[in-house]
Design a protein around this nucleic acid. Sequence first.
DNA 1: CACCACCCCTGGACGC
DNA 2: TGCGTCCAGGGGTGGT
Length: 289
Amino acid sequence: MPELPEVECVRLSLERLVVGRLVASVRVIRADVVAGPTSPGALLVGDRVSGVVRHGKQLAIVATGGGCVSVHLGMSGQLCVAGIKKPAEPTEQRTTGVSGSDWPAHTHVVWHLDGGHAIRFTDPRRFGGVWTFDDLDQLIKTRWSRLGPDALTITPSQLWKGLSQTRRALKAALLDQHVVAGLGNIYVDELLFKAKLNPMVPVDRLDREFVPGLIRRMKTLLYGAIQRGGSSLRDYVDAENQRGTQQEHHRVYGRAGLRCMRRGCSGWIKTGQVAGRTTAWCPVCQPIG
DNA sequence: CACCACCCCTGGACGC
DNA sequence: TGCGTCCAGGGGTGGT
C-alpha cells in the first residue's frame, strides 16, 4: 500500500521526530525480517540519527557514525515513533505470547531512543523488511543503484530511456521500479487517468512527446498526495500515527462500476487485470487508440 | 534480454 | 457465530 507519497510522509515525520536522537538499544523480536548483520552496532545502537533518506518506496535511517539501516514497508509495514511509556494506543491490538512485550501485534523491531521515544517497525504481511549496511554508500551501490530515478526527480529523457527499451503495457512499465522508482498500483492508475492514457497501450505505440506532460502530471499528483498526508485506505499512518486524506481525491482507484468523475464524461469506470494488477480506468477518457 | 506466472503473508470482506 | 474462500499487492525469482 505505501507508495512514494506515503513513504515520503513517513520520512518527513520520522525526520522531525528522531534526527539528533541517540539510539540507546534495539530489540529484534522477529529476526527473519532483518537482512545483513544484526549486531547492535549494525542496527545503529550507540549512534545518533543524522538523517532519514528515501529513494522510491525505500527508506533509510542514517547515523552519525555512518551506519545505515534501510526499511521497506512492503504492503503493510509501518514505522511509528512512540513514547515508551505508552507504547500503543488503546485501540491497537496487542501482541500475545511475546514475553514481556507490550507492543502492538506484528512488531518486529524496536529502536529505543533517548528522551523516552522509540521507533517500531510493524508489518503484518511481512512483505517489507529491514536491511543493514556499513554506510549509505553501500546501500546506494548495492540496492538503490539498481532502481530507476526517483519519481519526484526523474527527467523526461530518463523516463523516455526507460520506456523506449520495452514493448510492455504502459502501466507495466510505470510499475517497474527499474524504470521509475516510487509508483505503485494506486498512483499509476490515478496518473494514467489524469494523463488520459490507457494502461494497456503498448509503450512502443507512444510518441516521445507525451513524456514531459506525463512527468508534469506525475509530480503534481505525488506532491499533492504528500501535502495531503498520503492515501490511507486501510491502515496507513505516518510515524506520528496520522492518516492521510489523498484517498478522497482518487478518481479511478476503487471506483469500479461508478461514473467517471470528469466533468462532461458519462463513462463508467472499468476494471480488469493489467500487468497482473487490478486496474481501473475510464474507457471514454482513456481510449486505446 | 524481456516478460510473465508464481510466491511470500495476513487481515478483512463476503457467503453460507 | 463461525468457518471457508477469495482478494489485496511490492518485489524477488525462476521459467518460457
